[in-house]
Write a protein that binds this DNA or RNA. Structure first.
Length: 420
DNA sequence: TCTGGGGTCCTAGGACCC
DNA sequence: TCTGGGGTCCTAGGACCC
């Protein structure tokens, strides 16, 4: 049966979060910076209108920012994550089948609702009212068409934030007005390739023969084309699949030359990764550890900068993870080198609930778990960093820059908004 | 001088997404 | 001088097995 899929997307999400607690920012240009205050990763409409591109390094855009009095924020993921949860909770008041796709997007299956557009309008208004976050909703027969419809909803004010691709005529019109590079699933590389074949709009791509698409763009491109034609190839997934990896990595605030500083940074990142692992009830079988020096950060070769370590047994223990990854990063460290970034990836993730010890595993898992549970409890209830391993504590020369952070208005008692 | 074929699993790299 | 972080999937190639 034909489905009706909607995509709800928060408008300029991070910028809208900052505004929700600081109404003086309404109508003003604002930008949000990535970790380490490196790049611009979100912009209000006013900032977009000034010609500040997405992903632009902060220092390159500084002149536009200063000349136009643009407000600048370091990213505040605690705030954005909490606001995201509020938006999703509001959505759940109205519909049952929701697939949370990213921090600011959700697909909704509206197949069994009699008046999808009317419902979408109600959702949009309610989310705006209850959370302060403006959203747009696109509706179509497939996820890719819902994405395309969402672009139309955002672009043309007259639709009031909701647009549905229902009839064939509307589908063709929407696809003909859409650049192929803006289609969900078509990135820079494929866009370049398509341009050289004179395929410029979403519609152009949708009418290419299947075998041409498959041999030039692989199976992924073919799926996208099918979806544009209205044939669903990308499943709607209400229950998210178990994650397959956990990454924690950071660029350093400055260049780090000391072995101790590198170990300290990685120890911090490993602690975060282990907390995520336990939060999801998973165990990791191995970790990839990487350490990049200055030349790599500037785009040079990253030869010999990654090591994979296999844990003796699947683990979620902060101590075991730090011990193994710390040894790996030490073996990569070269005295005299200036380092810019390091991190780890936990892989081979399995469900802790289904894990049974083998005969040779002589760890005292019960004791280990009790310690970890106590650590997690203290850090959850009294703030992260309340208790940590000694190896994570130090001078912190690697800590990232964050010069313009807003308050955690919704998650810290001492940073609640004040009404005068 | 001559040197198979088919299958699986793993990994690295590249593409995409937000 | 200063350029993020966290994910997914696909493909090709190597190792290994019979």
């Amino acid at each position: 049966m034909e489905k009706i899929i909607a995509l709800l997307d928060c408008n300029n999400f991070y910028a809208s979060c900052e505004r929700a607690f600081n109404p003086a920012l309404n109508g003003k240009p604002i930008v949000i910076l990535s970790n380490n205050d490196g790049c611009i990763i979100a912009r209000s409409n006013e900032a977009k209108a000034l010609g500040i591109p997405m992903g632009e390094p902060y220092f390159k855009a500084k002149h536009i920012i200063e000349n136009n009095n643009v407000k600048v924020f370091s990213s505040n993921y605690t705030l954005y994550g909490d606001m995201s949860a509020r938006v999703m909770a509001t959505l759940a008041e109205f519909v049952k089948d929701i697939e949370i796709y990213s921090i600011d997007e959700a697909f909704i299956d509206l197949t069994n609702y009699p008046e999808p557009e009317k419902l979408a309008n109600t959702i949009r208004q309610s989310v705006g009212k209850w959370t302060g976050i403006p959203v747009s909703i696109g509706i179509g027969q497939t996820k890719t068409l819902a994405k395309a419809a969402n672009r139309v909803a955002k672009k043309y004010k007259s639709y009031n934030g909701v647009f549905r691709i229902d009839a064939e005529e509307r589908r063709q019109k929407a696809l003909k007005s859409m650049h192929v590079g803006d289609v969900w699933g078509i990135g820079r590389q494929i866009n370049k390739k398509l341009a050289s074949c004179n395929i410029n709009t979403a519609y152009d791509l949708s009418i290419q023969p299947d075998n041409w698409i498959k041999s030039n763009l692989t199976i992924c491109g073919l799926r996208t084309a099918q979806e544009l034609r209205g044939n669903a190839c990308i499943e709607f997934e209400e229950t998210p699949e178990a994650r397959k990896s956990i990454v924690v990595s950071r660029s350093f605030g400055g260049t780090v030359f000391e072995h101790q500083g590198i170990k300290e940074a990685l120890s911090n990142f490993a602690e975060r990764a282990a907390v995520k692992l336990r939060g999801d009830g998973l165990l990791a079988k191995r970790a990839q550890v990487f350490l990049y020096h200055e030349l790599v950060a500037r785009g040079g070769s990253n030869h010999n900068s990654t090591i994979t370590v296999e844990f003796d047994y699947p683990t979620d223990s902060t101590c075991e993870i730090i011990k193994a990854t710390s040894a790996a990063i030490s073996s990569m460290f070269v005295a005299g080198m200036g380092y810019k970034k390091c991190g780890l990836v936990l892989l081979g993730l399995i469900n802790k609930a289904g894990f049974t010890k083998d005969l040779f595993d002589n760890r005292n898992l019960h004791k280990q778990d009790s310690v970890m549970q106590a650590m997690d409890y203290l850090n959850n209830s009294m703030g992260s960093g309340t208790i940590m391993l000694a190896s994570s504590k130090g001078k912190g020369g690697w800590v990232a820059k964050k010069d313009n952070k807003s308050f955690c208005y919704t998650t810290r008692w001492d940073e609640l908004p004040v009404v005068h």
